[in-house]
Computed example of a mutant assay.
Amino acid sequence: MTDYHLARSILADRRFSRAAAVLPDVPRLSITDPAPESIISLDGSDHARMRRFVVGAFTERRLQELQPFVEKTVSECLETLSEQGSPAGFVSTVAQPLPLRVLSHMLGVPSADREIFGSWVSVLFDLTGNREENRSHAFGLTRYMSGLVAQKRREPGDDLLSNLVQLKDRGEGLSTRELITLCLSLLMAGYETTIDQITLCVLSLLYDPSLAAALRADPDLTPSVVEELIRLSPSAFVSFARATRESVRLDDVTIEPGQPVVVFILGANHSSLPAGEGENARTGHLTFGHGVHRCLGAPLARMQLATVIRALVERFPRLAIAEDPETFSWKTGMATRGLTELRVRW
């Protein structure tokens, strides 16, 4: 589905089910589809129950508390970039470490574990490596999360995982299996997509130096510029599939039960103006989805994007692409759009 209005209506229409799309006989569009018990794959009361446990981690108050950590992490990443010397790899130095450290901080992963933790997290979207090796790493990540749950039970902290463990121990929350699956779902939804969104937004700025100059002159423009960049170049370029349990007519097409429907987010974002918007105020988009499955972490992603872009244009006013765009190494598969690396100079 590429039309903005129809795509938006599908994402809000509960006849189009995520749970129905992960049934065994429904065709798969990607090997990275989340597990059926994942929050990303649930509908109705099951989905609402899982979402209720984690929505508090993304409130405005919690994000305000997190802002200093994000700013400090961005500063450290840019310092590392500077120390590498020009030219340097932006993805490996900034775009990748930032969301990993932020998600690790939110979950309560000890800093000493973050390197090995990050190597395991990266396999959740790795479509190019050895299948058996990736499976082994995925099992390693699950075992690690099980151990971390036990550690948080003994020594709780002020983090999301500790809060979930305490709810479970009071009989109010999730089973251990659900808890681990939920944490892995948050990583799956918020790690690789944010890496690639940071990279794509910065790439857009590097193609348009006048835009970077405008942001240096007026940093207050950053949130609106970020919003337009994620509309024009979303890292999550397709939605997870939906399927119906009944025949549904859309325009002149009948969608039969069990047929997967996918929103082409990149195309929908470009296809037409949202209702009531003028040609110079095109801000609506589906990059973070729509409806009950709208991305919980959208405010966190926006915060990271705005923070890194604001700091980057200020600290590196002459930042430029240091390689021929024709040689860019783009990721493959149906997971996210992005570059495996982006060489920059200043």
Rank of each mutant, 00 (worst) to 15 (best):
V226S: 01
E227H: 13
R52Q: 14
E65K: 08
L29G: 06
D159Y: 04
G276N: 10
M188N: 06
T176L: 05
A35T: 14
G147W: 11
P274C: 07
E71H: 07
A335F: 13
F58M: 02
L124Y: 02
N269Q: 07
L206S: 01
F240E: 04
L215R: 03
G278I: 03
V238T: 10
L167Q: 10
V202M: 12
A48C: 00
F16T: 09
S30H: 00
E65Y: 05
V54L: 02
T327L: 10
G284L: 11
F16P: 01
V202S: 09
D13R: 02
E83P: 00
V263F: 05
L215T: 02
A88E: 11
L286V: 06
T93Q: 05
E228N: 08
E83F: 04
I39T: 12
F125C: 02
S17Q: 12
G289V: 08
A275Q: 12
Q166V: 00
R345W: 02
W330Y: 14
A7W: 11
T287D: 09
V308K: 06
S86V: 11
P87Q: 08
G190C: 04
V344Y: 06
D126L: 03
T340S: 11
H285C: 06
Y4S: 01
E326V: 01
P223G: 04
G276A: 07
S224G: 13
W120C: 01
E178Y: 09
R294Q: 15
P209E: 05
T199I: 04
T307V: 07
V263P: 01
K331I: 05
T142I: 08
F53E: 13
I198F: 08
E71V: 08
W346T: 00
F125T: 12
P24D: 02
S119Q: 15
A217I: 05
H47S: 06
L160N: 02
G291W: 13
R8E: 15
P68G: 08
T73P: 00
P27Y: 09
E256Y: 09
R143F: 15
G147P: 02
E71T: 11
F53W: 11
V70N: 05
S146P: 00
R28T: 08
G190T: 04
L182E: 07
S162M: 00
P219G: 12
L339D: 09
L81T: 09
L205E: 06
I195M: 03
R315G: 00
D220T: 14
L127K: 03
S82D: 12
R62S: 10
G258M: 07
G147S: 07
D158F: 03
H137C: 05
G284N: 06
S119D: 15
R345F: 01
E228L: 12
S82T: 11
V225H: 08
L215M: 14
L103V: 02
Y207C: 06
F237Y: 13
R294L: 08
N130W: 05
V123N: 02
R153K: 13
E326K: 00
G291P: 06
P27D: 06
V202E: 10
G190D: 05
L305H: 10
V54I: 14
R51F: 07
G297N: 12
A35N: 09
P34M: 11
G297K: 07
T128S: 13
V263A: 12
F69R: 14
F237M: 06
A217K: 15
S204A: 15
M1H: 06
S224N: 14
F53K: 07
A320R: 15
R245C: 13
V253E: 12
S204F: 01
V225W: 12
D220H: 13
